[in-house]
Amino acid sequence: MEQPVQQKPLTFKDYKSDYKPVWCPGCGDFSVLAAITKALAELQIPRENSAVISGIGCSSRIPAYTSVYGFHGIHGRALASATGLKVARPDLTVVATGGDGDGFSIGGNHFMHACRRNVDMTYVVMDNEVYGMTKGQASPTTPSDWEGSKLTPHGTGVSPFNPLSVALSAGASFIARGFAGDPNGAAKLIAQAMQHKGFSFVQILSPCVTFRPEQAEWKKIVRKGEITETGDLGTAAAFLATDDGFSTGVLYETQRPIYQPSMEENHSLSEIEASFEL
């Protein structure tokens, strides 16, 4: 007979693997890894019942550094895989992760539709305004006049993508922004996002010290907790209209029906087959 075992509460360390990250020293993603594992620990989610799903890029390496189930798929498709997993297995806690290139460029279409669909999962995007893994090209969130890439030596000349505005207009039911320089604040935002019923999107400003060394200044610019949470679309939109992208906090939270079809078996296969009979 099995003896009941008194489980000790899991700490954030229990959600980390012993695998050494490929990230550069000083990368903001270390703090985001800490924040995600802290959020999992705060909610005491059993490791075997949670999954971190990603695409390709520096930040997309995160699943291997956790001790939960993970999926490191192909570029841009983290949200698609995460959606499939959560809809097929609604009992699981699903967190999709990735970077700005993965999520807003190659995966941009999935981002819009994940916001619309409102599957009960969380999407954490580590935004460093650059493609790091391919050694420094402009991403959708890079300022148009950034001349640091050989690929766009005169800058992109293209307006940056505003992830929070897109999320809001596409119908995301929880939208927040955090900062890697404030890991405890980021952990709180992620935990709040995971508790939200529906699709939650958290942008984390996560500096790339290698290809965007000027982002070291972010810690002086970012204004923690400046965003005031609202459930009113107009108020949230008005805030974003004048926002410079360096304020943090929960922007918007609302409740709308989550996408989770009922999965109740109420017919046998032979009943279905009978429909072919003449």
Binding site: S81, T83, G84, V87, A88, M263, N266
Partner: peptide
């Protein structure tokens, strides 16, 4: 699928549909 306890999601494109079924199958379904 609904009748036998399964489900179908309409995806936004074929890139999504195939990656969604990879996600579902990763989940054991």
């Amino acid at each position: 699928l609904e009748k036998v306890g399964g489900t179908l999601v309409q995806a936004e494109d074929e890139l999504a549909s195939v990656n969604m079924i990879i996600g579902g199958s990763f989940g054991g379904v």
